[in-house]
Every structure is written in structure tokens, then in C-alpha cells.
Amino acid sequence: MALLFLHRQVRSADRTFLNLWLAAALGLAGCASNEGRTRPTPAATPAFVVSGRGLTFPCPSDPVHKAYLGLPNDCRSFEFEQVKADILIVDVFDMYCRVCQYSAPTVNEFYRALRQSDLRDRVKPVGVGLGDSEMEVDLYRQRFKAPFPLLPDPDRKAGKTFQVSKTPTVLVLQRGADGQFQIIERHLGQFRKRHITEMLELVRSRLGEASKKH
């Protein structure tokens, strides 16, 4: 909000500089999270760590994305719990992270594989821009033509909630018996083509487990 206010106050002659400044200054914003981005993944975390309860995101402006998430057309903000899915794949990226940029086409491919499978209504990927503003997320979306919703996380609230400080990280969240999503898996580092198959196997196995329990 402060930035928008600032933008309106600056006379038009200075606006070019403000935009450049935003691009350049914000460029410093995401870099802290990228050091050591492909460090060895810690042991898998089957322990059910944390729910995203109370964490809100602005609703995507694109009606197609709203429908994909199962959100009403007039929604302004939402929590993950409102998303119509049994499993959420959360691609935590940062616009300034080169490895995230390398991962983006493969994550898009993973999305398409899910949409073409019988899992399309049960497993839904979304992206979260760790420390990224809407403008930065938009630049990332435009560059990589992400077909699924990318959500800004300028204050890193999502990062704190899900204990993610390094990017790229892919989280797998499964809806529990109480209706809340809980982290069942996290992957740190570049998302490569072989991970598509591995991730599909994992979600199938987890959904199979869940259906047997019920």
C-alpha cells in the first residue's frame, strides 16, 4: 500500500525512475532466501508439521484461477482450507532465485500432468512467491507462463507458517480428517523432470492411504 501511495504522489516525470527503482530495489528483496538453495534435502518429514490455518492470500483476479481453486467470484482473500482439493502442491519460489527460474517449466509440466490425470480434481498445484510482491509475482508469471495461480507472500507469512526459508521448495499438503491441510512432504532444490513421476507416485500413495482409512 505504501508503495502504491508513493507511486501516486510522484510526479509523472519521476515515475519512470520510481518504476526502475522499484524493479532494482525490490531486486534485493528476494536474494536472502536463495543461498544454499539446493542443499541436500533433509530427511523427509512425514511428521505432520503444521497447518496453514489463519494464513490468507489475496484471491486471484483471474476467474479461471478462482474456479480452479473452487473460490467464489466475489472472493477477496482466502485460506488454503477453502481450496477444493485433497492435496495441495505448493511451489514456493522467489523471482530472484535462478534455480526457481530453472524449475518453473518443470513445475508447469507437473501441473499439466496432473490436469490430464484422474487426480485433476484432487491434487492442485499453486505457487507462493516467498518475499515477492504482486509486481514481482506478475513478472515471474509472465516470463514462465505459469498456468496455475501464483500468490504473493511479500511479508513471508506463508514462509514462516510453513517453515520455509530457502527456495525453491515444493510442499505437499494433505487435508486431514479435521479438514485442515498439513505438510506431509517437502522438497528443497531444483524440481526436475524425474520428480514429476516421483511426486505423482507419492500423491497417489498418500491418497490411497487416505481412502483406505476412510
Binding site: E35, T38, P40, T41, A44, P46, R98, L202
Partner: peptide, 26 residues
């Protein structure tokens, strides 16, 4: 079932974590 799923998860995600780029050596 829980043990099997956990073992699968550990194997999958440990395998993914073996890549270290030059930029990790900062």
C-alpha cells in the same frame, strides 16, 4: 502402511537432495 509410506517418502526425497550447485559453495 505408515512405515511403507514413510520409507518411500524418505527414499524419494533423499534422492532428490543430492544435487549441490556451485552457487551453494558460497
Amino acid at each position: 502402511r505408515f512405515t511403507w509410506t514413510t520409507a518411500l517418502s524418505v527414499a524419494l526425497f533423499r534422492a532428490r537432495g543430492q544435487e549441490i550447485s556451485l552457487l551453494d559453495q558460497i
